[in-house]
Each structure stands twice: as C-alpha cells, then as structure tokens.
Amino acid sequence: MNTQKFSEALGEIDHSYLEEAVSYHRTDRPFRRTRRLPTALTAAMLALLLIGCVAAAAGVFGTRLTDLFTSRTESGYDLSVAIERVPTQDLSDELLAVGSAIQQQFETAQPHQSWYPGHWQTDFASHEDACQFIGLDLSTPAEWAQEEQQTTLNVYGTAHGQILQCILETDYVLNGIRVSLFSSIYTENYAEEITFGVRVAKDVEFEESFYTTSGNLPCQVIASSALDSSYLGLDGYLVYGGVLYNLHIAYQDGDSPQAEAILRQWADSF
C-alpha cells in the first residue's frame, strides 16, 4: 500500500474524527494557567522526602540538578548523571547482536529517508522477558508485575555496531494512575558525560526534593506543576547497580497521596 493512497483515504474520514482531534485540547484538556504546587502537596512532599539531601550530595553515583527553567515557551530541567558504565561483556549475546542490526542501518540509510540510523526498538511481553533479553536484572517492584501494560526496549548504537545505551520502558496502571518506569544503562562505549534532560510544556514549575530509601539509597524527586492537560508529574531518579532508574507518575490533583505512595513503594523496593 502506498502512503499517498493511505493519505488520500485519511482525507476522506468522517469529520467527527477531525473534530475530536482538533477539540481534544480545547474541550477535554483546557488551557490552565500554571500555578505553584498546592501548599498541601508541597508540605507532604517535604515531610515525606525530608532526609537524604546530604546523602545525595555526597554520593558517588546519582543524579544532580544542573538546570531548571520555566518559561512561556518551554519548561524543563537537566540532570547530571554519575553512573558506572556497564561492560559490554555483561550484556547478553542477543542484545549485542542488535549492534549489528544498527550497523546495518547506517550502511543502508539514505539521506532522503525519514528515519535516522542508530536506534532500534522492540516490545516484550513482560519486564522479565526484556531483562532476559538484555542480560541484566533491572529492578522493579515485584508486586507491580500484574499491572504491567507495555514493555519497550530502545537501543542506541554506533555505525561500528557498538551498543551505547539501552532504555527499557515499562508502563503500569496502578490504582488508575499511569506510571512509567525507565531503566537506562550506559555501556563502556558511551564516552560522553551523561545528562538527562526533561522538556515539557510552557509555564510548568518544578520542585526538587530528596528521599532516602529504606535501603539507604538517595532518590532525587522532581515534582512538576500541572500541564495544560491538568496532569501533575512526579519523577523519581535513582542510580543503582549501573542503572539509572526514572519513575514517572502522571496523576490528577486529587491523587497526590497515591502518587507519593507509589513513588515511596518503588524507591523502597531497592
């Protein structure tokens, strides 16, 4: 099937679908003026995530906020990540074979194509299956296994077939709250300094705090004020065993206690 024909067919679909796509933002996700975090939430976060600041600052491995900005066009923050690189010999043969596939991408890529070589992606039936494929045990709370929705592995490599980075995303819905766990590993081939940038919509404000897990690990927490969609964000960052873990929780205003509980449960599972 050629894309032109498909495009023509798309042009013929009923207007109700277009109306939905045009108005989705305006009616269901109305523009909301960004505001500071509710006082109750801030207080709860502070109470919950009080200790650990010193541990995070003094720790060898972990994340550190290097930039944070809120503007009318874009908001976001950058984290500097201190993490040990994973030796490629620790990775499975299956994963290393992906390097060859990426090398082939570079060899066959044409400048006029709409995709860029260097990225390979696949889905797995479960987080456990993905871990077996990678060859590493990436942590996730055992009790969440039943709530898994999707597991996707993204692998980045070079023209020489070297694996640089792997990001495993596992999505969950926990008591109606959407949760994404990103587990990132950087191999010994990754020579550059590691930064982790988050960019979101305009006028979003962030608040940084720290939590010390029950295993005495420092966990950096970034809470964001509401997006245009009215969703708030709560992100936890934790480096453990050569893996950068990022738990992203998108939730609505009334679900703050549940979101905090999810973050705490995840962090304490290490």
């Binding site: 996700r29 995303e169 960019r199 979101v200 245009d228 969609s229 969703y231 992203h248």
Partner: peptide, 9 residues
Amino acid sequence: RQVGLREKA
C-alpha cells in the same frame, strides 16, 4: 503537549 504525555511516550 496536547495529551499530557512525554515526547518519548
């Protein structure tokens, strides 16, 4: 931005 997800998602 429209649907409140991350770009990656």
